[in-house]
């Protein structure tokens, strides 16, 4: 009898990106949650003169309708995170099974799925989203659906290559010998072993979706004004950049960029953590 002693103990590796990213995301979520407490004014009601520069009364100034920018900036993540979050989740739920199927199904089926994905990806992301939303209208469910559709191919692609790689691993053969049916191999072994890159990609997609939502809202095809949303705010204030009223544009843009950076850090952190784990194994 050999008694098994762990040959390595799980040690906490340094992963500042993950730490900082998660902290920042937590702060942003908290801001969204506590927006009514943090906001100094009603985000969608006129609260002063138009285009006031930042002051003690209006910390970040007012926009051209006289709405308080600080209050709108703290309310915005409610809309942006909801849209991007649900859209990303749906995209992954749509793309992952499709990609796993394409990677696991032999020959013609897999080839057909991946060539179809090629075509869907040939449609420029932003133009397609803008076009779809222009046609169906920028209600929140529509925006979520469009985010899911334009992002799903990314997950299908990712899962396709993950499946292809993992299929050659012996533990997949072992699972089949153990009596797993294809569905059980995919759900029980391939998806769990792909979780890390999927999560990393989801974090990236979240950030990109926020930018996408802002972009379509900027041209008026997304979230409708006067909803507090960063892209709407930037679009509304854009004229001021030619005449010197920078604050309606600059502050929502900074808030948006910081949010995207936070998710990018989380994504990098997940990738690093995964590398650290596989190096240990």
């Amino acid at each position: 009898m050999t008694t098994v002693a762990p040959t390595s103990t799980p040690t906490r590796r340094r992963n500042p990106q993950l730490l900082i990213g998660l902290t920042a995301v937590a702060v942003i979520l908290l801001v969204a949650l506590l927006a009514p407490l943090l906001a100094t004014h009603d985000p969608v009601r006129v609260s002063g003169a138009v285009l006031q520069p930042p002051s003690g009364e209006h910390w970040l100034g007012t926009d051209r309708s006289g709405l308080d920018i600080f209050s709108r900036v703290v309310y915005a993540p409610r809309v942006d995170l909801l849209l991007a979050g649900v859209g990303t989740l749906l995209a992954a739920l749509l793309g992952v099974p499709l990609g796993a199927l394409a990677g696991y199904a032999p020959g013609i089926v897999g080839e057909a799925i991946s060539r179809t994905l090629d075509v869907v990806q040939a449609f420029p992301f932003f133009i397609l989203a803008m076009c779809l939303l222009g046609i169906v209208g920028g209600s929140l469910p529509n925006i979520i659906a469009v985010l899911a559709i334009v992002n799903a191919p990314i997950y299908a692609r990712l899962m396709h290559s993950q499946t292809r790689t993992l299929r050659g691993r012996m533990f997949i053969d072992a699972a089949r010998v153990s009596g797993c049916r294809p569905r059980q191999v995919i759900l029980g072994h391939i998806v769990p072993n792909s979780l890390s890159p999927i999560l990393a990609q989801m974090s990236v997609t979240l950030g990109m979706s926020i930018i996408l939502v802002a972009g379509v809202s900027f041209v008026g095809a997304g979230v409708e004004p006067p909803t507090a949303e960063w892209g709407v705010m930037i679009g509304d204030g854009s004229g001021g950049m030619f005449t010197g009223q920078w604050w309606p544009v600059v502050f929502p843009g900074i808030a948006l960029a910081l949010t995207v950076v936070a998710f990018a850090l989380v994504s990098n952190g997940i990738t690093v953590a995964n590398q650290q784990r596989s190096r240990r194994a």
Binding site: R169, M170, F171, D173, A174, A175, V177, S178, G179, C180, R181, Q184, H189, P192, N193, L195, S278, A281
Partner: peptide
């Protein structure tokens, strides 16, 4: 049944080894 060449690669790294050993009983 089968025993494969690479001892590390033939066990799902994400699963406890006990679950891997139990898997044939569960699936069958």
């Amino acid at each position: 049944q089968a025993v494969f060449q690479d001892p590390y690669d033939s066990l799902d790294p994400r699963r406890p080894v006990l679950a891997s050993v139990r898997e044939p009983l569960r699936r069958l």
